[in-house]
């Protein structure tokens, strides 16, 4: 159903990425099914088709779809006999940010949610600020205010009002 005509060479990399993305999900799914013995144990009553039916159907569709999507980029690559160029427009910011967020729960357990939030907001408000170097004092002030306000809002909203069990 995809109309590949008119796509240029750059998109071959993208298409392959898409195919790999789907196949990765399918692969992880198949591994999980293969290692799950209780899935096929007879706990289901005789009439229930069982907990394995739909996962297998869905994974089959995903695998077939993923494989089908590899055809066109691979063919293009073969015919053009050129290397696929991988576009890289990634920069450090989302990756660093993601790493910080992943560490966040651990930090939260260690020093409490309030301190963790204040530190996180302060650091990133500073790090992401435009022209931080030209006006360091102003940026620092804004970051400090942001950290305090965010922490207080989280405290009021989640701790005080809805009584979430924050560490």
């Amino acid at each position: 159903m995809d109309n590949d005509a008119g796509r240029n060479q750059n998109n071959a990399g993208l298409d392959l990425g898409v195919a790999v993305f789907f196949l990765l999900w399918a692969g992880v799914g198949w591994v999980s099914i293969a290692t799950n013995s209780s899935l096929f144990s007879g706990r289901a009553t005789g009439l229930d088709p069982g907990p394995a039916l739909l996962p297998i159907i869905t994974l089959a569709i995903l695998t077939a779809g993923g494989l089908a999507l590899t055809v066109s980029p691979v063919r293009k690559w073969m015919s053009a006999s050129r290397r696929i160029r991988w576009k890289s427009d990634l920069n450090w910011r989302p990756i660093g940010f993601l790493a910080c967020v992943v560490a966040f729960p651990t930090i939260m357990h260690a020093i409490g949610y309030a301190a963790a939030t204040a530190l996180f907001v302060f650091f990133w408000s500073f790090a992401l600020a435009p022209n931080a170097m030209q006006r360091p004092r102003r940026t620092l002030a804004i970051a400090t205010i942001a950290a305090i306000v965010t922490t207080l809002l989280i405290y009021v909203g989640f701790d005080l009002v809805i009584r979430s069990r924050l560490p």
């Binding site: 789907f22 999900w25 999980s32 799950n36 899935l39 289901a44 229930d48 907990p51």
Partner: peptide, 21 residues
């Protein structure tokens, strides 16, 4: 389809078998 699989993670609603866990 990925959404469907994600929805199956955890205990099966009918038999309580854990899936994709």
């Amino acid at each position: 389809c990925i959404g469907l699989i994600v929805g199956m993670v955890g205990f099966d609603k009918l038999t309580d078998v854990a899936r994709f866990d």
